[in-house]
Design a protein around this nucleic acid. Structure first.
Lengths: 245, 245
DNA sequence: CGTACGTTTGAAACTGCTCAATGCCTGTGG
DNA sequence: CCACAGGCATTGAGCAGTTTCAAACGTACG
């Protein structure tokens, strides 16, 4: 983990130790990051064709809207994560993406990515792991919605996000902050905002979270994890134990 | 679609027109199918290492168990579907698999599959599509659990399964039968068996389904689809419109 | 200063759950 | 051949978790 390099490199390094050449080509491939406003839709099919994104800073989310206005958020995305990768490789009519906060994103175009994969199979593998982890998260969310109570869902989501944030080195002294409005959390957990708010209050009363509009803080992740018996294995929080460079 | 060839070939042909050479190598790769009893667990890591399965006949399902006994079924799998493919490519601690009915399965071993992909990129692509479609289904199930009522969930599941079954040519005169016990349907929909039973009754009363222990029949899929305003696009029910042979 | 968005709270209604009991069919052992 | 057990389906009654509706509040922003 070097200073001033794209966070995506750190994330990929969790799954494959990358050599200097690989890093250099990856950086060249990413090019220059672009800014995106908060609460904006992210287009995957732009004028210059298909592209995906890598988050350098800021939070985003993926969701699916129903015709009647109901919405289900599929996942949240933080720095180091990738957005729309699968859609890019296979042009499926998948779901939609949007920013939560202001974001700095690298746009990745399909042919460039293909070339990068062809030249550096280990990079391709690392990307596949990123994808696989995303899918494991979706399955875990499915379990939450199907079989966990509101309290369990909320705790689970916060633990998951917490582990991801801290693992990326974005925590703050044993805790972390989470720039999500309650509306979004509710849409991720399949709950009404009203009920989410009440559920959140219970955590507040235990001092496990503090709440401000559009921002939620977990001062002590370890304490939250202890209360929630959260199993983090599906997050595959690796540390470069894969193929050596 | 030729008689007596593995159903998987039909399924792959939805996404890529395969040449004779490709078909032959695929058939050789699949080898001989093996029988598995109903209600058995399917091991992905066996003595001879990792493998995945392709269903030739019978139904299976994938699920995730919680420590306290709660269970969430992630998807059902019918002939032509694949089981554990992702787990095979990347050794993630994913979810579990089991048979619903007696099954005939082809076991696919990792190195063989790799060789097949290397030799026939178009086959690799077709498999990727299969995978992508599976993930689209999981996301759709997520939407169901998060944002649909019990009635909607049930209708949606039956429509989805119906489309898949009929698309594979396994329907019976405008309808199809579905060898799932209500316990499993409930675990897929995140409902209690009791409530599922009552929900099912409503459909029975409308003559949309008939029910016997361990078996559910939809006599007229089109009518069910009409009642449910089901959007089938995520199923990617292709018909060989991709790369020509 | 007004508007918009997000949050908070109360009250009432409802959906879906749990518990408990019953019935049915199939396979098995006596 | 019958009795019994086990798995699945069904039904009723009461309860709990969540939703909906409605209203009020705070803060940021134009």
């Amino acid at each position: 983990m070097k200073a001033n390099q794209p966070v995506l490199l750190d994330a990929l390094s969790d799954y494959a130790a990358l050599g200097d050449r690989e890093r250099a080509d990856l950086v060249a491939f990413l090019g220059k990051a672009s800014r995106h406003e908060a609460r904006a839709d992210l287009l995957i099919e732009g004028e210059e064709g298909l592209h995906a994104y890598a988050i350098e800073s800021g939070w985003a989310y993926s969701y699916k809207d129903m015709e009647d206005g109901r919405r289900q958020i599929v996942n949240f995305h933080i720095p180091g994560n990738t957005i729309g990768l699968r859609t890019l490789v296979l042009r499926t009519s998948d779901f939609s993406f949007g920013t939560v906060t202001d974001c700095t994103l690298y746009a990745m175009r399909q042919p460039d990515l293909q070339r990068l994969f062809d030249e550096h199979p280990r990079i391709a593998t690392a990307f596949m792991w990123l994808l696989a982890r995303d899918e494991a998260m979706v399955v875990e969310h499915l379990v939450s919605l199907g079989r966990r109570s509101a309290d369990e869902r909320l705790a689970h989501l916060l633990c998951e996000i917490g582990c991801r944030v801290v693992n990326r080195g974005l925590g703050e002294g044993g805790g972390f902050s989470c720039p999500l409005p309650q509306t979004m959390i509710a849409d991720a957990l399949g709950l009404s905002v009203v009920h989410l708010n009440r559920t959140l209050r219970k955590l507040k009363e235990q001092g496990l979270v503090t709440v401000q509009p559009g921002m939620l803080e977990v001062p002590d992740l370890r304490r939250l994890l202890a209360v929630s018996d959260f199993e983090a294995d599906y997050l595959e929080l690796g540390d470069g134990r894969d193929v050596p460079a």
